[in-house]
Amino acid sequence: MFEIAALGILISSFFVEFTGLYPGGIVVPVWISFYVDQPYRVMGTVMIALICLGSYKFLRRYLFLYGRRRFVIMVLLSTFLSLLIRQLDIYGGFKPVELETVGWIIPGLLANTMERQGILVTLVSTFAVALTVKLITVLIL
């Protein structure tokens, strides 16, 4: 797993250098690549990232949220929402599908990048790098 993470960070870094686009941060595509075979988990991560982004856009009307504060609010929202989804499952709540997230922080990192460079560009970049990492690890390792 360490080798895959190191390889993924290297691929993400090259992607940023050559394209100037951030794939949700350097580690986000690496973690997404670990869960490519679990589409509901990946969809849950994107869904939470979009909810974080929408919540941030609402909150910034009333609060001064730029720079470091923006990053912190995205990660806190991501953690809260990811834990909320898990609690629905623990207490026997209604979950029509196994909707989980890839970690607690990954959706916040993704939302933070979406705010800076746009939703579509971020998602395409993230999945391009994640699928590249997965393909290389399947072929080599």
Score class of each variant (00 low, 15 high):
Ile90Thr: 15
Leu123Pro: 07
Phe71Asn: 08
Val102Asn: 04
Tyr62Phe: 15
Gly93Lys: 12
Gly92Trp: 06
Gly92Asp: 10
Ile106Lys: 01
Glu115Gln: 06
Arg69Trp: 06
Ile32Ala: 03
Phe71Glu: 07
Gly103Val: 05
Val102Met: 08
Arg116Gln: 12
Tyr35Leu: 04
Arg116Leu: 13
Gly54Met: 13
Val72Ala: 14
Val124Ile: 15
Arg116Ala: 14
Leu65Cys: 11
Arg116Ser: 10
Ser78Thr: 00
Ile32Leu: 11
Thr122Tyr: 03
Ser55Leu: 14
Pro96Trp: 12
Pro107Lys: 06
Tyr56Lys: 06
Phe34Trp: 11
Arg86Tyr: 08
Gly103Lys: 07
Thr45Phe: 02
Leu63Glu: 08
Leu110Glu: 05
Phe71Leu: 14
Gly108Pro: 00
Gly44Asp: 08
Ser33Gln: 02
Arg68Trp: 10
Val75Trp: 04
Val121Phe: 11
Leu81Thr: 09
Met114Glu: 06
Glu115Lys: 03
Leu99Asn: 03
Ile32Trp: 00
Leu50Gln: 02
Gly108Ile: 10
Ile119Ala: 01
Leu110Cys: 02
Gln87Val: 14
Pro29Arg: 03
Arg41Gly: 07
Gly93Pro: 09
Ile48Phe: 04
Thr122Ser: 11
Ile48Thr: 10
Gly103Phe: 02
Met74Asn: 04
Val36Leu: 15
Leu99Asp: 05
Leu88Lys: 05
Ser82Asp: 04
Val124Lys: 13
Tyr40Leu: 12
Ile48Lys: 03
Val42Leu: 12
Asp89Glu: 14
Phe58Ser: 09
Ala111Asn: 06
Leu109Asn: 09
Thr113Gly: 03
Phe94Gln: 08
Val72Ile: 13
Thr101Trp: 09
Gly44Val: 01
Leu84Ile: 10
Gly54Leu: 12
Val102Pro: 09
Gln87Leu: 15
Leu123Trp: 08
Ile48Arg: 00
Leu120Trp: 10
Phe71Ala: 10
Ile51Thr: 01
Ser125Trp: 08
Arg69Ser: 15
Glu98Val: 11
Ser125Gly: 15
Gly92Gln: 01
Thr101Met: 02
Leu63Asp: 04
Gln117Gly: 02
Val46Met: 07
Tyr66Met: 01
Thr45Val: 02
Tyr40Pro: 00
Arg116Lys: 15
Tyr35Thr: 13
Val46Trp: 06
Leu110His: 09
Phe34Val: 12
Asn112Ala: 11
Val36Arg: 12
Gln38Phe: 09
Thr45Ser: 10
Pro96Ser: 08
Pro29Tyr: 03
Tyr91Gly: 04
Gln117Met: 10
Leu84Ser: 15
Tyr66Ala: 11
Leu59Val: 09
Met74Phe: 15
Tyr56Val: 03
Thr101Phe: 00
Thr122Asp: 06
